[in-house]
Design a protein around this nucleic acid. Structure first.
Length: 878
RNA sequence: GGGCGAUUAGCUCAGUUGGUUAGAGCAUCUGAUUUACAUUCAGGGGGUCGUAGGUUCGAAUCCUACAUUGCCCACCA
């Protein structure tokens, strides 16, 4: 084998295997009738920019799962790809244009889209590259983009199908409008933040009695310019006399009626509401109920239009100030109260959205939601952690129609054409391909709808559109439905729920069985990582500095729900990778004669091996068992802790230390070698690079650990006896080390140690393993006896039925040792007392299960034994 | 206004269906360097499990209330 350097040189090795796996298409999967499939689709990262820590976490989780199942014999296919992310990507490119002093309207649609495609090329490639660097075992030749030709065909087909089914309609409604992005948004795309606003109380005078007025309260006084009524609750006696009266709207002197509507809450504000049907969803409905005029007072950019009288050409917030000022002057402003309320913001640019009346395309959601509710209720799809089921259900059960048209250019153009020669509203042609003529009047004067579709209208097809749907093909049949979706809870509504609906509607089957929702990555102070806060840690920087394995391992180990990370956290992973590297060096350097054809099962079956070897093999199988369960239950941090404990504490700190003087033994070489080999396999899903590299050094052929077989379980579960015996050895060694440390005895100085015990079992155990105790405890002349030693000036500790006596001569401070023993006696006494009390308690004896009582009795006798020994030790000191 | 989490060592987190003296990593303290690894090794200190009640023979674990904190949803202008 080749020499390994003293440190794990991750830069070189990451690069090497990253390249190798891609070049050899190690992770390409094809339908294989002999294997069960395991497939997942990546949540396609937006091509807006580069990957952040959240992506690193998301993809690490997916990769652990993929690698685990691949090694477990599945045909594992991980579909990679990217999302065009309509508004978001258009925004970043618009910002670029702005820097150049131009705008998309000046550049023109075609040239602007060219810019976007080149942006997509650059950032899409970067993202794929970053995913590779992370070690993601994706099926790279399948890489898809949500605006691929084939994908676009799927989107169009879906639009037409839903339209034909009557589930897509066009209409004028109040939607969320972003005045900066100049587009409609869906309800989900408007993020509500609690904001400290004001409630303005404004007096609206009556036409007949200008001295009298109704006072209304509003948070958006500028919208009063579009008021077409004032509403009160019909049961509100304070106002019943005014219903039907006419009010003269201040500032623009429009005459508007006082109407009665149940919607009005008499408790809120003054109980009288201004009604602005074109600028508020509730008012819109009232407007429809009462046949009120809809007066739009705003241009798309939220600057007031000609309907705003003196306030036209003012921005909405500027107009708010001006209106308040004017009303104040006219003594029509009776009060301003602080009023905290939720204000909608654009999820992409954070501008305050405006409820705006406009004609858009919508999807009727209820019919799609029903089957999607059913599959979750029936447990065909499961959420992990389970509590997210409720969140999903709640949204689905109250689902509202989905506004899917966007007034932007980057995206799937809506497959709708309008005939110039047909009457309005009857001129709509919905088709997958550009029609050559109007099917009704044969006119060729057709224009396509200018708008594009919501980005999620393509993402919701991801699990099957990436597999070439609607083309019937083997891969689609074989890999759909996928097994699991790994994503963040933020997009349950945007994406998860809609994929379930689309899957059921178009594939007639669920898109995935499990949905695993992981936490958000935050900084050490718990803030969300973001560019604008400057607290983001770039995963690539961590890969450069600590290695990809370290990044992956550290993101998972000790992780709670949300993830709080600082740079230091990555040291855990880096150190562990280095530990694996060096332990492997040690084993490989010392095991030239290891029998590489042996299997761990064979070795486990040899019952005459030495205790440490039997122990480490048993520990391995116990760990393997627990890891299998943990991974399959999505408990990745638990799995990592098990691996860490096994490899570092059991294997390195004990086993490799114990066998240090035994490398000449071929059996020891074989066992160490085989344990390492199998340990690498179970570490591999978590740390693919270091394990692949070491594997290559261990194998004579060119096999890859990535596609090796996961260790099989066998019946070699941990032997209770072996682990107990080994624990005694460990405790004895620890007691000796402890005494050394306590009495400041330098390591070079040899010490003596006498182990006193009476039972045959313990005697034999100690005799068989005395050399280990001597070696690890640096003991010279270890002795075993069944007679009580009457040694003065000795450090004494008790391990079950074994008393460990270390003569210290004048090094010992008798007073100090007495205190130490006394403290220990006190602790022991307390525990024993508690146990005694419990065992004397009638109700405990009556009600507790027999095995618990039995256990407690055994414990008590152990404690009592220890106490007797300790007391003897103490009296011996006096 | 509703819903869902969280609260365990200085920090980040484990803690399975209630049943040993509540664990780990980091940090801290003491000691170790011709040894595979100082990205290391050995040892120590550090917790009345947010508060108050309740259920139980027994509670970090189950129940109730409260506190603190985070997230999501919601048309009371």
């Amino acid at each position: 084998m080749t020499e390994l350097s003293t440190r794990f040189n991750f830069k070189e090795i990451d690069e090497k295997w990253c390249q190798h796996w891609v070049d050899k298409q190690t992770f390409h999967a094809e339908p294989n009738p002999d294997k069960k499939p395991f497939s997942i689709v990546i949540p396609p990262p937006n091509v807006t920019g580069i990957l952040h820590m959240g992506h690193a976490l998301n993809n690490t989780l997916q990769d652990i799962s993929m690698r685990y199942w691949r090694m477990n014999g599945r045909e594992a296919m991980w579909m990679p790809g990217t999302d065009h992310a309509g508004i978001a990507t258009q925004n970043v490119v618009e910002k670029q244009l702005a820097k150049e002093g131009t705008r998309r309207q000046e550049v023109g649609r075609e040239a602007f889209l060219e810019r976007l495609w080149s942006w997509k090329k650059e950032y899409g490639d970067t993202i794929i590259h970053q995913l590779k660097k992370l070690g993601s075992s994706c099926d790279w030749p399948r890489t898809r983009f949500t605006m691929d030709d084939g994908y676009s065909a799927a989107v169009k087909k879906v639009f037409v199908a839903l339209y034909d089914k009557g589930l897509i309609y066009r209409g004028e409604y109040i939607i969320n409008w972003c005045p900066r992005c100049l587009t409609a948004l869906s309800d989900e795309e408007a993020e509500h933040h609690d904001t400290q606003g004001h409630l303005y109380y404004i007096q609206y005078p009556f036409k007949d009695h200008p001295q009298e007025s109704l006072t209304v309260a509003t948070t958006r006084p500028e919208t009063m310019l579009g008021d077409t009524a004032v509403a009160v609750n019909p049961k509100d006696e304070r106002y019943s006399q005014y219903i039907g009266k006419t009010i003269v709207l201040p500032l623009i002197n429009r005459e508007i009626p006082v109407i009665a509507d149940d919607f009005v809450n008499p408790q809120f504000g003054t109980g009288a509401v201004k009604v602005t049907p074109a600028h508020d969803p509730n008012d819109f409905m009232m407007g429809q109920r009462h046949n009120l005029p809809f007066i739009n007072i705003m241009r798309p950019n939220a600057v007031l239009n000609e309907n705003a009288g003196d306030f036209s050409d003012m921005d909405r917030f500027e107009a708010r100030e001006a209106i308040i000022e004017t009303l104040r002057e006219q003594k029509l402003l009776s009060d301003i109260k602080a009023h905290p309320h939720a204000v909608g913001h654009c999820y992409r640019c954070h501008t305050v959205v405006e409820p705006y009346l406009s004609r858009q395309w919508f999807v009727k959601m209820k019919p799609l939601a029903e089957p999607a509710i059913k599959v979750v209720r029936e447990g065909k799809i499961n959420f992990y952690p389970q509590r997210w089921t409720k969140v999903y259900m709640n949204w689905m059960e109250n689902i509202r129609d989905w506004c899917i048209s966007r007034q932007i250019w980057w995206g799937h153009r809506i497959p709708v054409w309008y005939c110039a020669d047909c009457p309005p509203e009857k001129n709509v042609i919905v088709a997958q391909e550009t029609p050559s003529a109007c099917p009704v009047c044969q006119s060729t004067r057709l224009t396509q709808d200018e708008d594009v579709l919501d980005t999620w209208f393509s993402s919701w097809l991801w699990p099957f559109a990436t597999l070439e749907w609607p083309h019937d093909n083997e891969a689609l049949k074989y890999f759909y439905p996928t097994n699991c979706l790994f994503t963040a809870p933020e997009i349950i509504f945007f994406w998860v729920a809609r994929m379930i609906m689309a899957g059921l509607e178009f594939m007639g089957d669920i898109p995935f069985e499990d949905v695993y929702l992981h936490g958000t990555v935050r900084d050490a102070k718990g803030r969300k990582m973001s560019k604008s806060l400057g607290n983001a840690i770039d995963p690539l920087e961590i890969i450069e500095e600590y290695g990809a394995d370290a990044l992956r391992f550290s993101l998972i180990v000790n992780s709670g729900q949300d993830l709080f990370i600082s740079k230091e956290k990555f040291e855990i992973g880096r150190n562990f990778a280095n530990k694996i590297w060096n332990a492997s060096r040690l084993v490989l350097m010392n095991s030239p004669q290891a029998d590489r054809t042996a299997t761990l099962e064979d070795l486990a079956a040899q019952k005459d091996s030495d205790l440490p070897s039997r122990w480490i093999i048993a520990r391995f199988y116990a760990t393997l068992e627990k890891i299998n369960v943990a991974i399959e239950k999505y408990k990745y941090s638990e799995a990592e802790n098990l691996i860490y404990e096994f490899f570092w504490t059991n294997f390195c700190d004990w086993y490799l230390e114990i066998i240090k003087k035994q490398w000449h033994d071929q059996t020891i070489q074989t066992i160490a070698y085989k344990i390492l080999e199998n340990a690498l396999k179970i570490i591999h899903p978590f740390m693919p690079f270091v394990t692949e590299e070491i594997w290559r050094h261990m194998q004579t052929d060119q096999t890859l650990i990535s596609v090796s077989a996961w260790p099989t379980r066998g019946d070699n579960l941990e032997d209770e006896r072996i682990s107990q015996d080994m624990q005694i050895l460990i405790d004895v060694v620890t007691a000796i080390r402890n005494a050394r440390s306590e009495w400041n005895i330098p390591n070079q100085q040899d010490i003596q140690c006498t182990l006193v015990c009476t039972s045959n079992d313990s005697q034999r155990l100690l005799k068989d393993n005395m050399s280990i105790i001597e070696f690890l405890g640096r003991v010279k002349d270890g002795a075993i006896t069944d007679k009580k030693e009457d040694v003065k000036n000795a450090a004494i500790s008790v391990i079950q039925d074994i008393t460990c006596v270390i003569p210290l001569g004048d090094v010992i401070d008798i007073a100090k040792e007495k205190t130490r023993i006394s403290t220990q006696i006190q602790k022991t006494q307390k525990t024993a007392d508690n146990l005694t009390k419990r065992l004397q308690n009638e109700t405990f004896l009556n009600k507790a299960p027999a095995d618990v009582i039995q256990k407690e009795k055994e414990r008590l006798s152990q404690w009592q034994h220890e106490m007797t020994t300790l007391k003897a030790v103490l009296s011996n000191l006096e």
